[in-house]
Each structure stands twice: as structure tokens, then as C-alpha cells.
Amino acid sequence: MSDPRPILFFDSGVGGLSIVAPARRELPAARLIYAADSAGFPYGVKQEAEIAGRVPALLGRLAERYRPRLIVIACNTASTIALGAVRIALDVPIVGTVPAIKPAAAISRTRVIGVLGTAATVRQAYVDDLATRFASDCQVIRHGSADLVTLAEAKLRGEAVSPDAVRDAIAPMLAAPGGDAIDTIVLACTHFPLLSEELAEAVGRPVTFVDGGPGIARRVAYLTQGQTFARDQADLAVFTGDVAPGLDRALARYGFDRVERL
């Protein structure tokens, strides 16, 4: 018998759509729900205590309402701060999104890696641990940018993105000691793959960008292996606050034709 339970993706904004896209390719039969905490957006400038309290409570409400078979926290900031608490609080499989430092270290030739995320993500001890475990022979240069999050959201709304604004946002990472040797950049915020073309232009030289989307898609496929799916309802996007003008068209491009408020 087919199982109608959806897979739920959660982010503070719409950056998690970069995680939805590869997951949809892996599991085209699955019903998906995308939940954006627009009332709490952005997470990257908030204090850890606020995120640690907000995310488990909100995911509890979402799990109760939509009964997902699995939840993907499609947000590096929320994952690095609240993943453990969410797994304790909910009796649902939880997949987190953490900076892809391991695959970046595996391909870097110069052994200098950039980690580009939000300020709240790049300062976490979780990132320290990833760097120690998987990139101990690399120089890891971290940089947090709230501006890139805003620019990614604007791009999805159909607004033009200023090349100068992107260049200014990443300039401190490239100007840091050793920054001229960076050959691999970890996109440690799910918003940032949405700006991959603009980021490549702003760097101005060959670098490889790495993000967690494909790996998360494979993990979701593994955890749901052998399960049946039923798309008895349309895929749904849920917002805790206002939906910015223009986002409805972007959501439809990612397969979410219905939008509602939590």
C-alpha cells in the first residue's frame, strides 16, 4: 500500500530549495513539503540560544501538523546549533545539513579551503570539529556573510543581483592570509548555491564550489529505501510569516504550487 507521508524540508528562508532540487531528482515519486521560518528569518545573525530554542519547537509543530516520514533541516546554521536537540525531541528521522568540509578536503590540491557561510555557522564548534577530523592538513579560511543570504533571496524573487555586492561580500575571505591560494570553497549556507554563477564571477579565477545538496539527497534516498510513496496531494510550501512578492513564481519552479501560512 502506498504511503502518503511527505518528506519535510526546513529552512529559515528559501535557501533550502538548493537541497530540495537534488532530493527531488533522487525521489521523484515522493511528496515534498517545504517549510520556511520567514517570521524568524534570517538565522545567521541570531544568537545561538534563540535558534536552539526556536528550531526544535517549530519543527515539533510542523511534525504534528504534517506527519512527515523524514525531516531535512536544510539550513547549516540550524543544523550546527540545533540538530542534536531536534533528534532528541522528535521521533522522526532527521537529516541535517552541515558544511561539506570532508569532500572539499578530498579534492583540494593547494590544501587551502574557504568555508563561506553565515556568521552563526562559521563560528560553531561543530565546524571546528569537521575541520579537525577531515581537513587537519589544510588551511581552512572561514568567512560569514549575511549579505549573500539577502542577495540569494532577492535573486529568487526575480531581482537583479549586483556583481559588486557579491564581490564585496566575499572579499574578506579572499584577502585573508592564504586566501589567494584557495582552490575549493565550501558553500556552508544553503542559500549560497543559488548564487553559484555570481560567486564564480566574483572570485575571478578557477575554484571548485562544494555544497551538501547531492550528499543529502543520497542520504534521504538511503533512509527511505524500500518505502512506498503516494502523491495524493500537491507539494506544499509553508511559511511562518509573510511570503515576499515574487517568491510564489520561484516556488512553482521548484514544484511547490501551493503556499500556506503555519
Rank of each mutant, 00 (worst) to 15 (best):
A244W: 05
P193Q: 06
R111G: 02
A160K: 15
S18W: 11
V186L: 05
A89D: 10
A23D: 05
P177Y: 12
A221W: 00
T240W: 09
E26W: 04
A230Q: 12
V166R: 06
R109D: 03
P68N: 13
T184H: 05
I7E: 08
A171Q: 14
E260M: 15
V14R: 03
V98F: 02
G53Y: 11
R109F: 00
R142Y: 14
A244G: 01
I88W: 01
I107T: 03
F134S: 13
Y254H: 15
C138I: 13
L223R: 07
I71L: 13
T208S: 11
G117Y: 03
G179W: 10
Q139D: 15
P6N: 13
K102G: 01
R231Y: 00
F10P: 13
I33E: 02
F229T: 01
L27D: 08
R205I: 04
A119W: 00
S79Y: 09
G204C: 05
L83Y: 04
N76K: 08
A120I: 05
V122P: 04
P6E: 14
V238A: 05
L90S: 10
D211Y: 02
I51N: 05
A29I: 01
G246P: 06
G178F: 12
R69K: 15
G16H: 10
V243D: 07
Y34P: 11
D211W: 00
E153D: 15
D128N: 14
V14E: 09
P56W: 14
R87D: 06
S145C: 13
E198D: 10
P56M: 14
K155D: 13
A252C: 05
L62H: 15
L156G: 13
A104M: 02
G241A: 11
D242C: 03
E201V: 05
R25Y: 01
D129K: 09
A119Y: 00
R231I: 02
A78W: 07
V203A: 03
A175V: 05
D37M: 11
V166W: 07
F239I: 14
R167N: 06
P103C: 02
S108G: 02
R65H: 15
K102N: 01
L247Y: 08
G212C: 04
A221G: 00
A152P: 12
T118D: 03
A230Y: 00
G212Y: 00
R258C: 04
P193M: 07
E48W: 06
E50F: 13
T150C: 09
L83N: 03
R5C: 08
P172R: 09
D129L: 10
S38V: 07
A175L: 10
Y222H: 03
P103A: 02
L90T: 12
R5F: 08
F209S: 02
A131F: 07
L32T: 04
A176V: 09
L17Y: 12
S38M: 08
L247A: 04
R109Q: 11
L27C: 06
Q227V: 00
Y222G: 00
A100Q: 01
G16N: 10
S12Y: 11
Y66E: 15
K46L: 12
L59D: 14
D164I: 10
G204P: 04
Y43S: 08
R24I: 06
A63L: 13
F41K: 01
A237N: 04
A49I: 09
G179C: 09
K46G: 09
A131W: 08
D180S: 14
